[in-house]
Simulated scan of single mutants.
Amino acid sequence: MLIQRLRLQAFRRFDAAEIALRPGFNLLTGDNGSGKTSVLEALHLLAHGRSFRGRVRDGLIRQGESALSAYVEWEAGARMHRAGLRHAGGSWEARLDGEDVRQLGQLCAALAVITFEPGSHALVDGSSEVRRRFLDWGLFHVEQGFMPQWRRYARALKQRNALLRQPGHPSAQLEAWEHELAQSGEQLTQLREDYVAALQPALSRLLPDLLPAAGDVVLTLHPGWRRQELALADALLLGRERDVTLGYTSQGPHRADLRVSLRDLPGREGLSRGQTKQLALALLLGQAGHLAAAQGHWPALQLDDLGSELDRHHQRRVLDVLAASGAQVLITGTEAPAGLAAGDIDVAMFHVEHGRIRGPGE
């Protein structure tokens, strides 16, 4: 995948700005608060339907404006694509390749962007929700049957939770929705387990370069209930009385978690801050490599403030891995990261200040 052009309007500090990106490495420098991270944030919004720094209504729209807009052109699989998004916080409208978009998932399916940013350590030391989102984003891009199953499960879960809170909670309706929840939940879990198994080799190949002290890694899925002992239908039935008391469904794929075991390092609670970041980056790049193998081209990769997230030695390891991949990479920093300063990697340089993006030669 090659992003060629990004245009922003009323996006954080930018009144209007445009950047023409190059293949390979693109470095955006500027002072803190200049807006360089906002460029990555715009691409992330188009590709994920959300920002990695909060909700659209929480400062993403330029002060005094009613809505932001972002437009992107990219090449994937020898085809050109164009997409535009106008977002007002509570409402949005978008177009993809000249057609109206009904669900943001259509944009997310077309444009694949993976972002490593200061909050990415949560993939290792954060809540299980972060790791479920990581798994489901990857599945969304490589498994066509995932999203219908996920929506089926989410609908059944919502209905069961509503019935649990109803006075009298009609048992016939509960049984019907539990049947639907169990069927879709078992299939959803199987898709996740297959994906984790497929992700394992990609991560194992990367770990010697990105976190050599780990030795080896084992990924396992905790499904969200005692799957080795009970079918989901039985777990829901046995847990119904407790769930009525709680007012929500306490077991199932919505409680699943990805567990990461490192052969030569302690569990996530025992990792240093640097090791946590390295492992999070390895997981993201492993996912990118798996996606590249499945689709025939790499997603765009974004690394925000690389110089402050990793030391010089580990920066170099990461840059070597990225250079070998051939992926398009966007990196931000107040200055060129030490790993890039050696000058042996071809980099397109951009500078961001006062709401403007200056490209190479400007």
Rank of each mutant, 00 (worst) to 15 (best):
M1I: 05
L2C: 02
Q4G: 12
A10N: 15
A17K: 09
R22Y: 04
G24V: 01
D31M: 13
N32T: 14
G35C: 07
H44V: 10
A47S: 14
S51P: 03
F52D: 04
G54Y: 02
V56G: 00
I61W: 07
E65I: 03
L68E: 01
S69G: 13
A70G: 10
V72M: 03
E73W: 01
A83Q: 09
G89F: 00
L96A: 14
E99P: 05
L107C: 10
A109E: 11
T115K: 01
T115I: 06
L123M: 03
W137G: 06
W137R: 15
L139A: 08
H141T: 04
M147A: 09
Q149L: 15
R151T: 11
R152Y: 06
R152L: 12
Y153R: 15
Y153N: 07
Q159S: 13
R165K: 13
R165N: 12
S171M: 09
Q173E: 15
E175S: 07
W177P: 01
E178D: 13
E180T: 13
L181G: 01
L181P: 00
A182M: 04
G185S: 02
G185I: 01
L188W: 00
L191Q: 08
E193H: 10
Q200E: 12
P201Y: 14
A202W: 02
L203R: 01
D216H: 14
L221V: 10
L230C: 05
L230F: 05
A231H: 15
L237V: 11
R240L: 04
V244W: 03
Y248G: 06
H254K: 10
R255W: 05
D257R: 09
D257P: 09
R259L: 12
R259A: 14
S261N: 13
D264H: 11
P266E: 08
G267E: 04
R268Q: 09
G274N: 12
T276V: 05
L279K: 02
L279A: 12
L283H: 04
G286V: 01
G289K: 06
A292D: 12
A293G: 07
Q295E: 10
H297P: 02
R317L: 12
D320G: 08
G326F: 11
A327N: 02
L330R: 05
L330W: 14
E335I: 13
E335M: 10
A336S: 15
A338Y: 12
L340M: 03
I345P: 00
F350G: 01
R358S: 11
G361Y: 01
